[in-house]
Nucleic acid binder design. Structure first.
Lengths: 338, 338
DNA sequence: CTCTGGCACTCGAACGCCCGGAGTGCCAAC
DNA sequence: GTTGGCACTCCGGGCGTTCGAGTGCCAGAG
């Protein structure tokens, strides 16, 4: 167990290093912080902290920098979440309030988050699995070709083409449309499969094939869209990463283009509260020198999607966490209103 | 007017510089190319080329590098478009053929283009202004709230909420839906305004207000969507830009997040054929050290959108142009099939 | 008039060197 | 447990040297 003062030393090291981006030594520490002890004592503490793996030296006789483990301790026990200032909050509200549709909300959110944190922002679109069906539309494009349009309560629209085995009459189509809607409108996506299970049986034999095809296309859409879309922004902030960054930045850019990777990253956000993954805690190798701060958002206590930022491990955790949390809250509000 | 040999020297300089990324000198030139003259002669030619502004020295007593003007001449008169190899063509076809919907086509195209050119790819979604209406759907969400869904022949779906002044009955709704569709289905977007102009008059007075609102929302959608969406990819290739790239890369990343800038960039592509904008020819300042190669694509001779790549001025122009042109053609084909 | 070889000159990159400063670890003393 | 002192380490920057590639110019040959 580390003594109170040693924790204080660690906190000071993290803060200074985040600010200056340079290894911090014992003397500089005592000058910038009121630790009440001499550099020599700090040196002893540092030796202990290093032995325990919280800090490290880039090379002998240089200052110390925090390790991933050090940042972890800092986040868990030494740093709170720094609330935003009132003007900042007001700015968020004003900026998000101008949004006209879902795309716009997400777009504004991502820009806002990137600007506030000066890092790369990632925002997931509200999830379909938690949403409910607002309407299902079926259109006949050609004798044996239908278009299925699905409208969700979050305002999202998905469309699919359906090729039928046999021609499908207009009356059957209207019939299917009506029955389908009466069953699923207002219901959750996850409930839909059971609700439509017995639908083909109530149709004429020659139409059953087509009905089944339509239904399976609908179910497919739900599943496929569970792998959800997201938007990223603020990639220009990657240039603030560090000096050596051709090597650091490349894998990050690659990761940012892989939706799957990003979704997994966000997905690791704990249901309640915020998740912070530091350096090697990230499963994806290319992000080993970055940290991810993510949190779920939604309206009325329900998480419909997640958002977060990706930045260097050397980041201002309290500030970043504050911004992420605040933005998530306001987005939740906006969604609840619309 | 430059002599034949001087042009040949310029071509050699461009080719070598693109390959090695280092200033090229007279001796190296004569060694790598069969110019049939001595280094001294080449030196004289270089002096002339420099005087004319086609090449420049980074510092005295260094080799020469092409200027924007030099690249311009190279592209216009010295280099053709390098066709892709048969395996490459086949790979393109296979890759694009697997696409399932419009998003997928665009997504695959952007990845393909980024991979082929090893640069940043930008693909614009097929334009709505050139498309035709496949279907207009009206749904009643609440007594005085409608949803308007527009489906285009390119498979795109746009939805809008419409708030009515007065409640709008189901029969009126069905009526409007039917009349609207009978007038606009299969017609071009640009023709829609005239086609629906007199529609409100044929409705009962109490419904006219709502009908007008719906129509103006529809027309708005057309106009708004004229500012079109696009997709980018291959940003990781930015790391291959050069040694000094923190400064080069940042404005490029910023530009890539500004849809407006990108759309303008692509928009400058000449209707027929390919456009190449080199360095300072780009209006946007942040892209002054990059070149943009863009071209329109579409089916049946009609351009529905554009695509292109953004890379360093020091790029393989013939190869890039070849890839861009080939990809555009295949995407056009795919769109025509679906 | 054009091309060529020769020659002196110029720089930048790379290398080695030295020095100063910041930082460390250890130890003896308080 | 804390402190001051001290010797040691190592990085970074500044400086001079060398090396090589490249240039410009000029006189002479075709």
């Amino acid at each position: 167990m580390l003594s109170e003062r040693r924790l204080e030393v660690l906190r000071a090291i993290v803060q200074d290093y985040v600010g200056t981006e340079e290894p911090v030594g014992s003397k500089a520490l005592t000058e910038r912080h009121r630790l009440g002890v001499s550099p020599a004592t700090v040196r002893n503490d540092m030796a202990v902290l290093e032995e325990e793996g919280y800090i490290a030296q880039p090379h002998t006789s240089a200052g110390r920098i925090p390790t991933d483990k050090g940042y972890r301790l800092f986040v868990d026990r030494l740093a709170g979440v720094k609330p935003l200032s009132t003007p900042e909050r007001r700015a968020i509200q004003n900026f998000l309030d101008g949004a006209v549709d879902l795309d716009d909300v997400v777009g504004r959110t991502v820009r806002l988050l990137a600007q506030l944190t000066r890092q790369v922002a990632v925002v997931q679109y509200p999830s379909l699995t938690r949403s409910t069906v607002r309407h299902v539309e079926l259109l006949s494009l050609a004798p044996a070709r239908l278009m299925l349009v699905l409208i969700t309560d979050t305002g999202r629209v998905e469309q699919r083409l359906v090729d039928c085995q046999a021609p499908f009459g207009e009356t059957s189509l209207a019939d299917l449309r009506a029955r389908l809607n009466s069953r699923v409108v207002g219901r959750r996506f996850t409930d839909v499969p059971q609700l439509v299970q017995d639908l083909p049986e109530s149709f004429e034999p020659e139409d059953r094939g087509t009905v089944s095809t339509v239904l399976s296309t609908l179910l497919e859409t739900l599943v496929e869209e569970a792998e959800e879309r997201l938007m990223i922004g603020g990639t220009a902030n990657l240039t603030r990463f560090g000096h050596d960054f051709p090597l650091t930045i490349r894998p990050v850019l690659e990761a940012l283009e892989e939706q799957v990777v990003l979704l997994k990253l966000l997905g690791e956000a704990n249901e309640s509260g915020m998740a912070v993954r530091i350096g090697h805690e990230n499963a994806y190798e290319g992000l080993n020198s970055t940290s991810v701060v993510s949190v779920g958002y939604g309206s009325g206590g329900e998480t419909v999607a997640k958002l977060g930022v990706v930045g260097p491990t050397r980041m201002d955790y309290p500030g970043t966490m504050g911004a992420v949390r605040a933005v998530a809250r306001y987005v939740g509000q906006i969604l609840a209103e619309s």
